[in-house]
């Protein structure tokens, strides 16, 4: 079975972000730690598990701007066989529809049975690319899956949507996007880290140009909530003060 994983390399959300002087975006520099997209890591893990179970090959596809190789090698140490990297500052920073078109273009050449992606890239937070790639390829998609069963000719996946548990069946090929409860990603072992250095990483180019239909004009830190009112005293006192606030001021009950 051939499994493609759409793998975005993102700044760790633990980064202490700073804004650029124009206040249009955050700065990334040498102190920024680039990691596998947290949801993409579940996708990578799931792809490797499928390979280990039914045999096959796992190939990742990444659009990036030059900070990716270390993380791609980590995915290879986890068990990814090959990687495709489209390195282009312009494309990496473009709108999600352009990203989806470039990824679909690359994935098409792979003839994959299963295409796994994260439910969301934690940097731009669009939750867009997975289903868009499916639509561009004309194949079905099941998003935000929390369990997966793979057969010769299809998959069964479950997910939670608005409090309901939904179970889907699909033929292959199919696009699946991973939610966090799908699995626990493995830590690569030292010999695998060594082996990963020799696995093929194909650099590709794309003729697709960004649409330029979206411009980020401002970036800011979210307004801090001015809380800080403490209620102290005996249990009776604190409950009474809180209830008074919730009923009289906030009119909740």
């Amino acid at each position: 079975m051939k499994i493609a994983v759409l793998l975005k390399i993102v700044p760790d959300t633990e980064t202490r972000f700073q804004l650029n002087p124009e206040e249009t975006d955050v700065i990334t520099d040498r102190t920024t730690e680039w990691i596998l997209g947290p949801y993409d890591e579940y996708a990578v893990e799931e792809a490797i598990r499928i390979k280990e179970k039914v045999g096959g090959q796992v190939i990742t596809v990444t659009i990036g701007s030059g900070n990716e190789e270390k993380s791609i090698r980590k995915a290879m140490a986890m068990g990814v066989d090959e990687a495709i990297l489209v390195e282009s500052e312009g494309l990496a920073g473009s709108d999600p529809l352009t990203i989806a078109k470039v990824l679909a273009e690359q994935v098409k050449t792979l003839d994959a049975d299963i295409i796994l992606a994260g439910k969301m890239a934690t940097d731009t937070s669009d939750s867009f690319v997975g289903p868009a790639v499916a639509q561009l390829l004309g194949i079905p998609v099941i998003t935000e899956i929390s369990s997966l069963e793979v057969r010769e000719d299809g998959v069964t996946a479950t997910r939670t949507a608005s409090g309901r548990s939904e179970k889907f069946e699909s033929k292959l090929p199919v696009v699946l996007t991973a939610d966090k409860s799908l699995n626990d990603p493995r830590y690569p072992k030292l010999p695998d880290i060594m082996k990963a250095k020799k696995k093929p990483l194909h650099k590709k180019e794309s003729a697709i140009s960004p649409r330029g239909a979206i411009t980020q004009i401002k970036a800011a830190f979210p307004p801090q909530k001015a809380g800080g009112t403490k209620i102290e005293g005996t249990t009776e006192e604190v409950v009474s003060v809180l209830m008074d606030g919730l009923t009289t001021k906030e009119k909740i009950f």
């Binding site: 700044p11 959300t13 980064t15 972000f17 804004l19 975006d25 955050v26 934690t122 940097d123 731009t124 937070s125 979206i214 411009t215 980020q216 004009i217 401002k218 970036a219 800011a220 830190f221 979210p222």
Partner: peptide, 10 residues
């Protein structure tokens, strides 16, 4: 974006 740490205008 970035795990709700940054607000943007687009």
């Amino acid at each position: 974006i970035h795990g709700n740490k940054i607000h943007t205008t687009v």
